[in-house]
């Protein structure tokens, strides 16, 4: 699957996109984050505060306990700040 990182997550992780096949025991989005964090300090730092992490599965907003089975594209990003203040 394709993993995407935006805004400060992209900066902290050091890349915007990667192709990965998570382990079989990675079932939910939260599992995926745990697994990513085990890959390096950059991930651990980026995902430190999960309250400010938003996720989209196949370009639809999702929750941390949603399953990732069948996902082609999973994106992680901070709360959105478009429009005008």
């Amino acid at each position: 699957m394709t993993l995407m990182y935006f805004a400060w997550l992209k900066q902290k992780i050091g890349m915007g996109e990667e192709e990965l096949t998570p382990h079989d025991n990675v079932v939910t989005v939260a599992d995926l984050i745990d697994w990513l964090c085990s890959r390096g300090d950059n991930f651990a730092t980026a995902f430190e505060d999960r309250d400010v992490i938003r996720v989209a599965i196949n370009q639809e907003f999702a929750e941390l306990d949603d399953p990732i089975a069948g996902a082609a594209e999973i994106a992680f990003f901070p709360p959105v700040t478009g429009g005008q203040t």
Binding site: A56, F77, P78
Partner: peptide
Amino acid sequence: APFWKREAGADGDNWVEA
């Protein structure tokens, strides 16, 4: 809508918080 703003000023730059 998935947009994120980054502001740059004389004192550096930072991501705008929601």
